[in-house]
C-alpha cells in the first residue's frame, strides 16, 4: 500500500475535538473530587468543584451543539452512520485484528480512507459515546443543576438519586472510553501520528 496523507479532520472538527477533550477532562477531575469529597484531603474544594463543574458542563453542551449541528449539516455525519447488517461480523473482524492480527503485522481489515474515518469498533463506541452517553450526561447534568425540577419520587426511588446515578454511570463509561481512546490513538503509522493528525488535520495511512 502506498503511503499517503488524507485530509480527514477539518478545522471545525479539530477545534471541537480539542475543546471536547479539555472540557471532558476538567469535568472528570472535578466530578471525581465531588464524588470522593473529603474535608481533610480535598482534591479541589467542594464549592470550587461545583462551580467549575457547572460552568464547564454548560460549555460542553454548547460544544456538543457544534458537533450535533456540524454532523447534521456537513459530510462528517456520514462517518457516524451505523450499517446494521453484518455489523457483528465486522466488529469481530476488527476485534480479532486488535487482539491477534496487529501483533502479527497483518493489514487492518478496515483501513481508514476518506469514506471510512472509523473502523467498525471505533464507529460503534463513538456513536455510543456521542449519541447515547453524552446526551444522558447532559440531560441529567442540567437536571442536577436545577434539582427543583426533578420529581421527588421517580419509579421506585428518589428522583434525585436516580438522576445522579445515571449521570455518574454514564460519566464513568465516558471516562473508561477516554483511557481506551487515548491508548488506541497510539496505534497509527507511528505512536504519535494520530495525535499529530488531530493538530494538522491529515491522517497518515500505514
Amino acid at each position: 500500500m502506498t503511503e499517503e496523507k488524507i485530509y480527514l479532520y477539518p478545522v471545525w472538527v479539530r477545534l471541537w475535538h480539542l475543546f471536547n477533550a479539555i472540557l471532558c477532562l476538567t469535568l472528570i477531575i472535578t466530578g471525581i473530587s465531588m464524588q470522593f469529597s473529603n474535608p481533610k484531603f480535598p482534591l479541589i474544594a467542594f464549592n470550587v468543584s461545583v462551580s467549575i463543574h457547572n460552568i464547564v458542563g454548560i460549555l460542553l453542551c454548547l460544544n456538543y451543539l457544534i458537533f450535533f449541528l456540524g454532523n447534521l449539516g456537513t459530510r462528517n455525519g456520514r462517518y457516524y452512520k451505523l450499517i446494521f447488517p453484518g455489523l457483528f461480523s465486522r466488529l469481530m473482524a476488527q476485534f480479532r485484528y486488535y487482539t491477534r492480527g496487529l501483533f502479527k503485522g497483518e493489514p487492518a481489515p478496515y483501513p481508514i480512507n476518506s469514506e471510512r474515518k472509523f473502523n467498525p469498533l471505533q464507529q460503534l463506541t463513538y456513536v455510543g459515546s456521542m449519541y447515547i452517553l453524552v446526551p444522558v450526561i447532559m440531560v441529567t447534568g442540567w437536571a442536577l443543576m436545577y434539582p427543583e425540577v426533578i420529581p421527588s419520587r421517580f419509579l421506585w426511588t428518589s428522583g434525585l438519586h436516580l438522576t445522579d446515578l445515571f449521570h455518574i454511570l454514564a460519566a464513568f463509561m465516558v471516562s473508561l472510553f477516554m483511557f481506551i481512546h487515548v491508548y488506541f490513538c497510539t496505534i497509527g503509522k507511528t505512536p504519535f501520528s494520530n495525535f499529530k493528525g488531530m493538530i494538522n488535520g491529515y491522517h497518515e495511512t500505514h
Binding site: 454532523n71 455525519g77 457516524y80 451505523l82 449519541y131 446526551p135
Partner: peptide, 16 residues
Amino acid sequence: LNYRPAWVIFILILFA
C-alpha cells in the same frame, strides 16, 4: 440513513 442516529436521539430526548 446518514443522519439516523441524530434523529433517533432527538426523538428519544423529546420522549424523555
